[in-house]
């Protein structure tokens, strides 16, 4: 019996080591800063949203970019409440700060770095990710290569800052050293009762790639500070493709 227990412990230890080698930091209680994200948690290998790692978001048009920005804002809102300020690096910033209040962020606590060149942006993102006093770094950058993404990943492993790379219309969609790749699309909002108007922010969240986890697709509504999962399973695009193939 004892031998089995020991084996189990050992396997658990090894699993943690593998996760650490893959860029996921070992989850501790204090690390679990992003809570209440519901069923999505099961997609992650550690059972919690991976912090101290780089997440990649891809948007192919401006509507998707707005949705991705909203989704990222929801995530960093929780981080900022508990850890500190956030750096938002972008080229030609279009973000309208007053809108962030809706996602639980005090807009004046975000420091924006507005740049002209991608070269500078990459440098700033890397420097920022090395600064452990930041809660999160959002980098709006169009293209970067594997080597650059690996450098960023190394930086966060030291500092435990969470990085969000938002790639708007990337020229190439190659593999990066990020732990995950997301694509967020806007979805028709739901209405409460029969009131006219527009509902809350609603997205089709697609986790396309997650290292050592289970990719998935969810329909999420942002309801007063937390994610609300829609009942209907998402009519994912893949289904449409299969129909066509038939």
């Amino acid at each position: 019996m004892e031998a089995i227990l020991e084996k189990k412990l050992k396997v658990e230890e090894l699993r943690k080591m593998i996760l650490a080698a893959e860029g996921f930091s070992i989850a501790s209680e204090s690390d679990n800063l992003i809570k209440n994200i519901g069923p999505m948690e099961q997609a992650f290998p550690t059972g919690t949203f991976p912090l101290g790692a780089i997440h990649e978001f891809i948007s192919n048009d401006v509507e998707q970019a707005a949705a991705s920005t909203g989704f990222i804002s929801c995530l960093i809102a929780q981080l900022m409440q508990q850890k500190g300020p956030c750096l938002w690096v972008s080229i030609g910033n279009r973000l309208f700060p007053p809108s962030l209040g809706r996602f639980g962020i005090a807009p004046h606590r975000i420091i924006f770095i507005n740049l002209k060149q991608e070269k500078d942006a990459l440098w700033v993102i890397e420097e920022a990710l090395k600064c452990s006093s930041l809660a999160a770094v959002v980098g709006e950058i169009r293209d970067l290569d594997l080597t650059a993404s690996r450098r960023l990943q190394l930086a966060v492993e030291q500092s435990r800052v969470t990085g969000f790379l938002h790639r708007y219309r990337p020229r190439r969609a190659q593999n990066l050293a990020c732990v995950s790749r997301w694509q967020i699309r806007p979805l028709s909002s739901r209405l409460d009762g029969k009131l006219p108007g527009i509902g809350r922010p609603t997205w089709l969240v697609e986790l396309q790639k997650i290292r050592n986890g289970k990719p998935g697709t969810w329909q999420i509504e942002w309801v007063s500070g937390r994610f609300h999962y829609m009942d209907k399973p998402a009519p994912a695009r893949k289904e449409i493709y299969t129909k066509k193939a038939m």
Partner: peptide, 9 residues
């Protein structure tokens, strides 16, 4: 009233 997350300049 809600404000848009992206505002065109």
């Amino acid at each position: 009233e809600p404000r848009p997350i992206y505002l065109l300049p």
